[in-house]
Amino acid sequence: MNIFRLAGDLSHLLAIILLLIKIWKTRSCAGISGKSQILFAIVYVSRYLDLVTTFISVYNTFMKLVFISTSVATIYLMYVKFKATYDHNHDSFRIEFLLVPCFLLALLINNAFTPLEILWTFSIYLEAVAILPQLFLVSKTGEAESITSHYLFALGSYRALYLLNWIYRYYAEGHYDLIAIFAGAIQTILYCDFFYLYITKVLKGKKLQLPA
């Protein structure tokens, strides 16, 4: 564990908490993509299957359980409790266009051809693109509430901090995982346009609004 890794995990946790606060306080999931949330739930479940096979640390187990349970809770809030506020019409991204290619790629490019390893690889590829339905929703509506912007910023920062963690680990421990690094870089790149808008608009007190 190094400072970048810890900051990345905390940023990830903050993102999830911000999202839950937004939905709970406003009693609404408007502006949030249920499709992205479903993809994230698939990511956590398929990645953390090793919870039942391997014990790594209390921290590791705790965080995995938090990520799985909060993503299920988010889906419950969106599709059951605050269903009426869900922006169904704008959330029209077809997730099978992400699920199928990620799974095929995981079958082709993986570290070992075993079920757990393929599902881990699939989750890494899927996580890289799981935010696309959310970004698509923001681009369709042309704006995002500020708390949604903070959520997206924290979520994007998490993988960017992991990139620093991987650079650190490469030099400090000689450790690297090309699949994670490649997918993490793609994931971070997808947020760049949003980061730019966040820094130039939201941090200056303006609403995140896309140019018409």
């Binding site: 090793d50 790594i56 995995k64 570290n111 070992a112 881990w120 992991y162 963690n165 995982d177």
Partner: peptide
């Protein structure tokens, strides 16, 4: 490569 059993990252 790192086997799944040794992956400590989240």
């Amino acid at each position: 490569h790192v086997p799944t059993s040794e992956k400590d990252e989240l």
